[in-house]
Design a protein around this nucleic acid. Structure first.
Lengths: 209, 209, 209, 209
DNA sequence: AATGAATGAGCGTTCATTCAT
DNA sequence: TATGAATGAACGCTCATTCAT
């Protein structure tokens, strides 16, 4: 588990640990409900029913809290990927499709619809956000790469990497269109199937030069 | 040409028109350099070497300025699409590839890399941003749809729409990966070719149920 | 006629004179409609369909405009009082009642309801407003004093003055209660009759010590 | 006691309570000295020797502060009325005269002279001010009504209400004439006696139709 | 561990006023 | 005479952060 960005010496006790989790959950709730602009310390404090001072007791700077928040989201996906990997039935193709479908349909949750664009935008100006983005998608691609290499063993490693990136990017790009409340949200399933079929074709038909 | 959101009676004179353009350019510059959080009226004023009051003289509300800014970007792409359509050589496939390559490689400009994620994030909280996003991509998809329908006339209209959306989304999703300064920027060309080939396959092989 | 507070050299021409009147009328309209807080140069300009610069061409300072505006209201009442005096039928009691009723019922016009409290408040901080208040009520009291002295010739002059002031103040005090839109507006007539009867009693029964 | 309009959670401690009182006193001081136009958060902060942020810490909106300020004035008068009612000697006429004299002579305090006209003017534009005005005078009239009904039990209830209103309005109307620093301030006592006698006559002689 | 008070910088916005044309 | 551009000061308000308790 990653080291928290809390003030040294805080969050050690059981109570403190609980409090930190409560703060992170509250912050996530607000980010999803009100967007990044609504994510103020006052709002988080109100959400958690604690004082602003108590938040700054754990997180000296707001950016520290955001860092931990980003990592928590990352950890959530990493755990999901691990779960998928562990639940492997041996049928790589089924597994690949399941992963793609999971990630694609997850775009429809309000959490993902709101959180990721904020993170992408932030990544252009804040280092910690850029790092978080890198980590999250690196983990996603690693899973893709394993599956792609198994599906088409003749692909050279770099090609595998590029295909994984392409598929990952293609999925993410749908966020603004099929996300929660977006214009094409009702076609999310259909578009997901197009993506899955297309990704399969790409991986299977692709041949080394 | 769209109506500007400036106060009625302002920006009529030559000087005023110039000033409005200067303000919009300054705002764009700052948005790209410092992100949405840095885009304050004071920053724009400083960038333009004018007073804050002078900005609010033209734009009563910051949102009015942002609206115009979004539409300017939109107009830029719309003009480009028109240019491409007008320059049609008759070879639909070449044209389709050219369009895809243009849009994909454009992701590598710092302007696009930074501006669009900001717009996507904003679209979740601000109506005008959501409308701007919708308009921009609707124009892009319209061009795609024309080309796809010509490439594979047997596709039903809805299928054409979905394929256009899928391709458009897939391109945009690469922004965070192959954009200016991003980790995979050096593979932008190669990834672009993967996308182009894949899109062509998708359009040509796709068959009505 | 009072001298206007316009810039020296302006408002001389026929056109200029008309413009000044237009500005004053516009300002009054806005003051009545939107209150003192809404009375900005921009609002007046919009109301008149001219530019802000054109207003400041005539009135260098906003206070100059307000001064003229206050005096115009004063002139309006002064003219009304003159008219009443000139229309005298010889029956002093009828005339007295008519004057009281006119002034009291005038409290119900939105103009009076809004304008006078603003003037009273302003009078505590701005000299010109204090002077305007003094002038307006001095003219009103002069009319009252004439009528009271005729109604009860045995009253000494100072007593006449005090009674006139008392009656004038009593009327004005009803503004906040029976003015346009106020809680007791529907009882305006009935309260006016109470005041008239009471004032008559006071004047007729009052005896020198 | 009325609930304060301060932010929830603030002003709970002794220090906070003191601070809120200090802010209200400072605001009152400025309103009296400089009028409503001078009553800015910055001015109040300077008066109290604290930061603007500290005021908005307690009062999120300026209107909240003004509301509390109006209610404090109201509470002051309400307490005075209660005191008078409790000190009742049994002689209703004496009591009635005492109340009228108290209110009338109070017009001579700078606080009353300045504060109330501001409130009347504000009442035309701001709801909270209108409500405050209504509450203050409703309390005053209630006291009047009790006394009037006792002085002349034959008066029907509505008539009592109208007479109370008339007397209240007549008193208030003297503010601009006999208030602190006003032209007729030196005749305040004499005019007060005229009002008292006149009010007594009105109440005693008035007969149901 | 937690609170509530307090700050200071900065925000978008309003507006009277100046001025070149 | 009239306009539109431009300014600068001030406004109410937000918010991350500090700190004494």
């Amino acid at each position: 588990m990653r080291e928290l960005q809390t003030r040294p010496g805080t969050g050690a006790s059981n109570k403190g640990e609980q409090r930190v989790l409560q703060i992170l959950n509250g912050a996530k709730e607000i980010l999803i409900r009100d967007g990044y602009r609504g994510l103020t310390l006052r709002a988080v404090a109100a959400e958690c029913g604690i004082s602003v001072g108590n938040i700054t007791y754990y997180y000296r700077h707001k950016a520290d809290l955001l860092r931990d928040l980003a990592h928590r989201v990352f950890d959530g996906y990493a755990a999901e990927f691990t779960r998928i990997r562990d639940a492997s039935t041996g049928n790589t193709r089924d597994e690949f499709e399941a992963v793609l479908r999971f990630i694609f349909q997850d775009l429809g949750t309000r959490e993902t619809t709101v959180f990721f664009p904020e993170l992408w935008a932030l990544a252009n100006h804040e280092d910690y956000a850029g790092e978080a983005v890198n980590e999250i998608y690196a983990a996603e691609r690693q899973l893709f790469e394993e599956l792609i290499a198994r599906l088409n063993p003749r692909l050279p490693p770099l090609r595998v990497k590029l295909l994984a990136l392409h598929i990952s990017a293609s999925i993410e790009g749908h966020t603004m269109f099929v996300g929660a409340g977006k214009t094409w949200a009702r076609q999310r399933f259909e578009l997901g199937e197009i993506l899955v079929q297309n990704a399969l074709n790409l991986v299977m038909q692709d041949a080394p030069d």
